[in-house]
Design a binder for these strands. Structure first.
Lengths: 121, 121
DNA sequence: GTTTTTCCGGAACAGAACGTTCTGGATGGA
DNA sequence: TCCATCCAGAACGTTCTGTTCCGGAAAAAC
């Protein structure tokens, strides 16, 4: 997890402290913390949460999930879907959800792909 | 990390899918995912991020660092739609968008006005 | 009712990953 | 010079994970 190590170093830099100081803040062995910051080890989930809490940031940011990605064609499609779905009636929405999940969520390990006819449409 | 396992199960329940289905959505071995949901194993950071991304939630929430807001039935349907749509291929997604917009966006009355076609579909 | 499919979890094993310790180099201040 | 601080390589024992095999329960299909 390269981004995690990068974010750890960034965070300490923004706080104006050394990695060793950050380690002590988080009550972690310095060498251990350094391994995280150098992308050589990964913490367990509880330690990850602890680091985020003490350094006053979010795990999403530390894991690189918080960046707003540029507007791709696909993102725009998902956007349109949301907008359209929002204006549906509950019943219409249920229908769309059912159909979409049928496409998206793999059910069988079975090889044969028989598709039962969509009823009530 | 007890809270993580709990949140995993909650998330699948809210999406109206089984843990096995959630595992397939996340492209993880079912047994492996079950170990996470049963608080017997913990994922590495990349897998954690992947789960949060695909199940359309945040790692902060999964790790118990953020409180979750109460959701309406309708919000859960929109949630399910998002999760399912995200795992579609581009072509499948375009189809769903087209169908949903057809349901949602009323055609103009017969005033002769032209409706611009849906681009890129 | 019978069969098939799906879901779930225990047990176990090889291999991967981790925490820790020891070590040494680099830098800066007293 | 001496000392404190920061940093990272290597190694070792231990812990933990991914995976596989297995069986039972429940639901669905026949």
């Amino acid at each position: 997890m390269e981004i995690f190590a990068k974010r750890l170093k960034e965070r300490a830099a923004k706080l104006g402290i050394s990695n060793a100081q950050a380690a002590r803040l988080c009550e972690l062995d310095e060498r251990r913390y350094a391994n995280y910051a150098n992308d050589q080890r990964e913490p367990d989930l509880m330690t990850l949460a602890k680091i985020a809490r003490i350094l006053n940031t979010s795990t999403d940011h530390l894991l690189g999930l918080a960046d707003h990605q540029p507007q791709t064609e696909r993102a725009r499609l998902l956007d349109r879907l949301n907008v359209a779905a929002t204006s549906l009636t509950d019943e219409e929405l249920r229908t769309v959800v059912t159909q979409t999940e049928a496409l998206a969520i793999p059910r069988p390990k079975k090889t044969g792909k028989k598709m039962p006819p969509i009823s009530g449409v």
